[in-house]
Design a protein around this nucleic acid. Structure first.
Length: 268
DNA sequence: CACGCCTCCTGTGCGC
DNA sequence: TGCGCACAGGAGGCGT
């Protein structure tokens, strides 16, 4: 469940601990899912970047790409934990290990040539970073105006905007008063949604992410944003804006939380 | 081509 | 009390 704020928090936590250090060993347990980690050995971590929910480790002439999936944790420890869910371990010069623990195995890890993302189609076609200038209002308004899949599916697909998952999609739609099953969003609502996406992600980063159940930051601590959620995991409880009970439905195969009073039903 | 549904995975929590 | 099943979901993949 790590989404952009959680992945960014982990990036900031572990970058100072690994940048400029050489990888001296690499081990993966879990079969072909985590292939070719040995190519990291002997290379130095030059930088750690993030694109959407992907972490990108600059290893000079290689790039290590990690997606945390539902339950992935990434941290630096003096020795790897005795966890049955330890999927990969990178030994760093000086004795520490970069550890990847992932209970549900939804996470992925692969090594590619820098910028060559053909094997990772979602990353290859990733939309603009929502907290950068690349997230332009005009392009966003045009993209969500199209009569296609419902707005929740559009936001989850990573193509129009990067980094949103189930929690922050529900939160951004509530803040902008848009029903999750709406299609063809008008200009005024699209601009409110654009603003809401930036606001909710910024606030969640300030809170070091949302710990709903399994998420931990780069120091294995919980995030603090859960208590500030307005709709996610709040079915039946009062909407913080109007007091109506939050509803839970199924949209795009995802549990979807919204306020029936604040987020008007889509026309159709 | 694009949309929508299925699948993977395992611990948790609830209902009977 | 204990068992068993539904549920949680990001993204790849496949079928329509």
């Amino acid at each position: 469940m790590p989404e952009l704020p959680e992945v960014e928090t982990i990036r900031r936590d572990i970058a100072p601990l690994i940048v400029a250090r050489r990888i001296e060993s690499a081990d993966a347990a879990g079969g072909p899912r985590y292939g070719r980690v040995a190519e990291a050995v002997g290379r130095t971590v030059r930088a750690l970047a993030r694109r959407g929910k992907y972490l990108l480790f600059d290893l000079e002439d290689r790039e290590l790409v990690i997606h945390l999936g539902m339950s992935g944790r990434l941290f630096v420890a003096s020795s790897a934990p005795a966890s049955p869910h330890l999927r990969a371990e990178f030994g760093l010069e000086g004795g520490d290990s970069l550890c990847f623990v992932d209970m549900r195995k939804f996470g992925t890890l692969c090594i590619v040539r820098p910028g060559q993302y053909a094997a990772i189609p979602t990353l290859a076609r990733m939309g603009p970073e929502p907290l950068s200038d690349a997230f332009e209002q005009t392009a966003f308004v045009r993209a969500v105006a199209r009569q296609g899949p419902c707005i929740k599916a559009v936001l989850l697909a990573q193509k129009v905007v990067a980094g949103l998952g189930n929690i922050y999609v529900d939160e951004a739609l509530h803040r902008s008063g848009i029903h999750p099953e709406s299609r063809g969003i008008g200009r005024a609502q699209a601009l409110r949604l654009h603003r809401a996406i930036r606001d909710v992600l910024t606030e969640a980063i300030e809170d070091r992410g949302t710990t709903f159940s399994l998420y931990r930051d780069g120091h294995l601590a919980e995030g603090r944003h859960y208590e500030r959620l307005r709709v996610y995991d709040r079915a039946g409880r009062p909407c913080p804006a109007c007091g109506s009970p939050i509803a839970k439905i199924r949209v795009a195969q995802r549990g979807t939380h919204y306020c029936p009073a604040c987020q008007s039903a889509p026309l159709s």
